[in-house]
Amino acid sequence: MTESSSFPGASQVLTLCKNIFSRIIKASDNVPQHVGLIMDGNRRWAKLKHVEIKEGHNAGFHSMSRALELCYEAGVSTATVFAFSIENFKRSSAEVDSLMNLARSGIKQVVQNGEMAQKFGIKINVIGDRKLLPDDVLREVEAAETITKDNKRAVLNICFPYTGRDELLHSIKEVVQATQLGDLASSDINEAAIDRHLYTGGSPPVDLLIRTSGVTRLSDFLIWQVSRRDVVIEFLDCLWPDFGSRQMAWILLKFAFSKSYATGETDPEDYDVEARGSPLKKHV
């Protein structure tokens, strides 16, 4: 679903299709609540197309808007995107600078004239070790957060700069500190406590993770959240700038189908076979 189609009115038809599709998915009542995105492959895409790396990142940004638009329309309440890893500071300073510029202008765009923020009422959170950000970017980030702080419908977490281990360390430290201050008894330290103190603490649990460009690693993204049982992990072969509404739609449909199918299947008789020691009777 690209906008390159030259038929008059084609884009309207596409928008209509997208809207109908998202309503349909919404009606299934099996929409992921929190989607994680690893937007991998912008640089490889740029190399393949023989354009500057900057262009690749730009294309990636548009691709992200397309995917998120469909998600939010279909009723996803939170999305977390991996924009910049702490490890990315190892890249060439020119590229780091251009990424920072892109982030600055991107955040600006989303906040000021991007319809997305207004249309969906998106609240933007920038999560990660923000001490590492340059001052001007940090200012932009804070401005974006204050402008969107009253939006209630959906949340966009931008991980910038972030690693999963750093997040976990941060949470562990906060929990330990809370016990020191007497807010939490050490016997009350449990999974929920760690969850609360993660950067994604206020969000629903992650139930879908998407990574593009054929790499089957987490690369230190949401390690705590994604290693849970029943989190759907999708690894796609396409590069992130080529990831569009079509792929997103397919993933949402797949998710909804498998979840409605699973709820249809969960018959208690299936489970306590072992307890009763009775032979398994497959029910149809």
């Binding site: 999963g164 281990r165 976990l168 089957t216 690693r217 987490l218 690369s219 230190d220 390690i223 705590w224 994604v226 290693s227 849970r228 049982r229 029943d230 989190v231 759907v232 992990i233 690894f235 498998s258």
Partner: peptide, 19 residues
Amino acid sequence: PNLDLQGFPPWHIRLTEFY
């Protein structure tokens, strides 16, 4: 049939390749 990490130690899957 579909990748599910099933609570595998999270600290230990930072750069692990899945298959």
